[in-house]
Design a protein around this nucleic acid. Structure first.
Length: 139
DNA sequence: GCCAACGTTGGC
DNA sequence: GCCAACGTTGGC
């Protein structure tokens, strides 16, 4: 089981949207590094759901229910393969306390976290040690 | 609204 | 293959 963190603009697709939908499809990723991370995900992997922009906080934990398959929202040019993929996931549990970005940035053991180091990446791996810290901070 | 970081594109 | 120009993301 691997652990990940995914970012979404809450105005576009929020934690609440995922809860309302039941099963969410994580589409629209157009960055190769993020795509590679999506492709590495397996059913049962855990994902921290993070709100970017105005909210800027980790809000809950989701679980992958379907591994990567081609992104239906992207139409490749004729004869070319579709390079982009999506995964499916469900909300598992909200954090009791949202974890603001400021808290994450200030935690000494999260300085190497991809969220801090590579702020533009939208899908990133999280180490087991980092995961445990998020769980603790989230209550 | 501004700006830094960084990915992509296109000219050479 | 290099690099300038440009676009996008996301924090502040």
């Amino acid at each position: 089981m691997n652990t990940w963190l995914m970012k979404s603009e809450p105005d576009v697709y929020s934690w609440q949207d995922l809860i309302d939908e039941g099963t969410g499809v994580w589409d629209g990723v157009r960055n190769y590094q993020a795509r590679n991370n999506l492709q590495a995900m397996q059913v049962g992997d855990k994902v921290i759901f993070y709100h970017s922009n105005g909210a800027r906080a980790a809000v809950g934990v989701a679980r992958i229910t379907k591994a990567a398959f081609p992104d239906p929202t992207f139409t490749p040019e004729k004869g070319k393969p579709n390079p982009w993929v999506v995964v499916e996931l469900v909300a598992e549990k909200p954090f009791k306390k949202e974890i603001p970005l400021a808290t994450i940035k200030q935690h000494p053991d999260l300085q190497n976290c991809a969220l801090v180091r590579q702020s533009r990446l939208s899908v990133m791996p999280i180490t087991k040690a980092e995961w445990a810290i998020f769980e603790k901070l989230g209550g």
